[in-house]
């Protein structure tokens, strides 16, 4: 927690945010390493169902990205507007993919 004696922020200043503890970050890191090992094993073990391993790899990658964004990048503790804008950006990307796919899949 920020030192209240220092007059860095005005009272109620939204920039006064909590300090994420060391241990918490290390726990997140362990989780990310486990997910990495999982995704490599799924691929190297040679599951013959290609589509299955691609979907698994993507699900794990998305999970890792969400964890990094939420905890390492503090998205969970910051102004919710950033999260909303992130959603808008991702929606934009989905629109790009969808419209390009509509074009290529119907040729």
């Amino acid at each position: 927690m920020a030192d209240k004696n220092k007059s860095r922020h005005l009272p109620g200043d939204p920039t006064e945010h909590l300090i994420v503890p060391y241990k918490f970050h290390i726990g997140i890191w362990v989780g990310l390493i486990v997910l990495t090992v999982m995704t490599v094993l799924v691929s190297v073990m040679g599951l013959s169902l290609i589509a299955f391993s691609v979907i698994t790899a993507l699900i794990i990658a998305v999970t890792k990205a969400v964890v990094v964004a939420n905890y390492f990048m503090h998205l969970k503790y910051d102004n919710k507007l950033i999260t909303i804008l992130m959603g808008v950006t991702l929606l934009l990307f989905v629109v790009f993919i969808a419209f390009t796919a509509i074009d290529y899949l119907t040729r």
Binding site: T39, S43, V54, A61
Partner: peptide, 8 residues
């Protein structure tokens, strides 16, 4: 990483 290295 998964899209280039792990797609097999």
């Amino acid at each position: 990483f998964p899209l280039f290295y792990l797609i097999h």
